[in-house]
């Protein structure tokens, strides 16, 4: 009798234990299901607002507050005078002579080339780059009406882009430096400059004009212009690929050197502003 009672009690205990275990398993299963659902569906974060709408987060972007650093021309009591020789309207039949003279003096210069001339002398574009000079752009046509009288900057920018492509095809170099035919003032106003900056170009005018166009029969006039104008620590000197330039170039170089100037070539990594409007974007 005692043994029967004991067996019944044991069986009852077993049933109770089984029910508790089942309840426990169901409870754990439900708990894991709920947590799992949250993890999979909502990943444990609350993404739903009170109105039943999901809260959305946008990812961030960088602020680009820095810019190129300027090279000092005066520092620690030292002063450096630098001259940039620049040649417009080439390449043409005078360019090889200019290159020869520059090579003789171990000077690198900056060439603002016309697209129409580049199409006729692709070999010279390559020579300019191969010899360490900087290829820059001066439009395709140099046509004042087409470039500045259309009512927008479109023609100007299109021509610079076309010229840019020619340089790239000939040399593999993508240059962004341009010079506006006839200079940037007065014809290039602010909205025009907005478009140039937007297109990613940098624009150089000059600080000293040799007025070579005026001295075809008297190249020494160019030297006089330089003697009169050479004053700043950094000078960007305007010349053209012309006969008179070839004739006077050795003397110009000698005079500029004698005044304590070193010659530099444009470097996009050391760009500085040289435009008549002092537009910092260019």
């Amino acid at each position: 009798m005692v043994r029967v009672d004991s067996r019944r009690r044991n069986q009852r205990k077993k049933w109770i234990l089984r029910i508790i275990l089942l309840a426990l398993l169901v409870g754990i299963g439900f708990g894991v299901y709920t947590v799992g659902k949250q993890l999979w569906a909502h990943d444990g974060i609350s993404t739903t607002s009170k109105q039943g709408q999901h809260v959305v987060t946008s990812v961030a972007a960088f602020d680009t507050v820095t810019k190129e650093k300027q090279s000092p021309t005066m520092y620690n009591g030292m002063k450096r005078k630098v001259a940039y020789l620049t040649f417009d309207d080439g390449p043409n039949s005078h360019t090889p002579e200019i290159l020869r003279i520059l090579k003789e003096h171990n000077i690198k210069a900056t060439f603002f080339m016309l697209g129409n001339s580049m199409q006729q002398h692709p070999d010279l574009i390559k020579q300019i780059v191969d010899e360490g000079h900087y290829p820059a752009l001066h439009s395709m046509t140099h046509n004042f009406t087409k470039l500045y009288r259309s009512g927008s900057a479109n023609n100007f920018i299109e021509e610079q882009k076309e010229a840019q492509q020619l340089v790239k095809e000939a040399t593999g170099v993508t240059t962004n430096l341009i010079r506006a035919p006839y200079g940037s003032a007065p014809q290039i106003k602010e909205p025009f400059r907005d478009d140039i900056a937007e297109a990613g170009f940098k624009m150089w005018d000059w600080t000293l004009d040799t007025l070579d166009w005026n001295y075809a029969k008297n190249p020494s006039g160019m030297l006089d212009e330089v003697k009169r104008g050479l004053k700043k620590d950094t000078e960007v000197i305007l010349m053209h690929d012309r006969k008179q330039t070839v004739e006077i170039l050795p003397e110009l170089i000698e005079y500029i050197s004698s005044q304590g100037y070193e010659f530099e070539v444009y470097d996009p990594n050391a760009h500085f502003v040289v435009n008549f409007h002092h537009d910092e974007r260019l």
């Binding site: 398993l25 169901v26 754990i28 299963g29 439900f30 894991v32 299901y33 709920t34 947590v35 799992g36 659902k37 993890l39 999979w40 569906a41």
Partner: peptide
Amino acid sequence: LAMIVAMAMMLAACGA
């Protein structure tokens, strides 16, 4: 127990 847990996770994964 392991089966229940696995099933619950699969259910949750398929749920959304």
